[in-house]
């Protein structure tokens, strides 16, 4: 935890701090992640078949097998590593094509990023099939402010004759992009460096956000955004959440209700952020 541990008997801070680590630690605890021994929390997201587990294994030194299939990592894998005197906890989220459907995998991944608010979300993408992978990348960027794109399988892309301009990509996405080939270990030191930079706030992301919205619902959308901002100031992108709610994502609405209960339990009722 970044903040000092709170000794027993001391009241938690009562001012609005929905984004502070006390609040987040409680949320993470609800999601089943214990943050007691760790400085930072990293989430690993990505499409199936992008070598996400290879990246996870390379970072943690674990040997977790996930086959050439979508949805293999049904249970969340966790590991940890140390880099430059800091301890990082890393959570491997299920491989999904999207965060929009209502499959259990996608819900796990979305809720984790949205409510767990990891210090860094690393999205692993297949460089040889970038367009498809960007679909998920853009969705992740909608729900978090701190992300890194790990452009994996660069060796395969090269073999297929593709050249990927990672600087251009970083400019367009507004987050750091690291080309890697996790199988051979290429690019992993750089990935670690960038993760630590983003986690420590040395690099600030300005993630690409969707601007396009259907004119017919603009009014309803704006109204909803105001309400969500009031009730959930911790959410990085109220507009996205509003779009999803208008899109009929009842699971998200349910998750928000759950999240709210947890938030109120940590931040006392006197907390203006929740009241």
């Amino acid at each position: 935890m970044k903040a000092e541990p709170i000794p027993a008997g001391v009241t938690p801070p009562t001012e609005a701090c929905a984004t502070c680590s006390v609040y987040r630690a409680a949320n993470l605890k609800k999601l089943g992640v214990n943050m007691e021994q760790w400085d930072y929390m990293i989430a690993l997201a990505g499409n199936p078949n992008t070598g996400k587990s290879t990246v996870f294994n390379a970072l943690t030194g674990l040997r977790q097998h996930t086959g050439n299939w979508p949805g293999k990592t049904v249970t969340r894998a966790e590991g940890g590593f140390a880099y430059a005197d800091k301890r990082y906890k890393i959570v491997d989220l299920p491989g999904t094509y999207s965060l929009l459907s209502t499959s259990p995998d996608e819900e796990i991944a979305r809720d984790f990023i949205l409510f767990g608010q990891p210090d860094v979300t690393v999205v692993v993408a297949d460089a040889s099939r970038l367009e498809r992978n960007l679909n998920l990348v853009l969705q992740v960027l909608e729900i978090t402010d701190r992300a890194v794109l790990c452009l994996n399988l660069m060796d395969e892309a090269r073999r297929h004759g593709a050249v990927v301009d990672d600087r251009q990509l970083a400019r367009d996405l507004g987050v750091p992009v690291v080309p890697t080939s996790a199988r051979s270990g290429e690019g992993l030191p750089e990935l670690l460096k960038v993760i630590s930079d983003v986690a420590a706030g040395r690099v600030v992301c300005r993630p690409h956000r969707l601007t396009d919205e259907p004119p017919a619902i603009r009014h309803a959308l704006n109204e909803l955004v105001t309400k969500i901002r009031q009730m959930h100031p911790e959410l990085p992108n109220a507009r996205w959440v509003a779009m999803r709610l208008l899109g009929g994502d009842e699971n998200l609405a349910e998750a928000l209700r759950r999240g709210e209960i947890g938030g109120a339990a940590v931040n006392r009722p006197s907390n203006p952020a929740v009241a």
């Binding site: 960007l134 297929h160 004759g161 050249v163 367009d172 969707l210 259907p214 009929g248």
Partner: peptide, 30 residues
Amino acid sequence: PGDVHEHLVEAIYADAARIADRAVSRPGHQ
């Protein structure tokens, strides 16, 4: 609601295609 959902998906894919197009080139053409 379905329309909002679909609009969103299409908008994301449109952005993805645009960004990917700017970043990827295929000199080898294979």
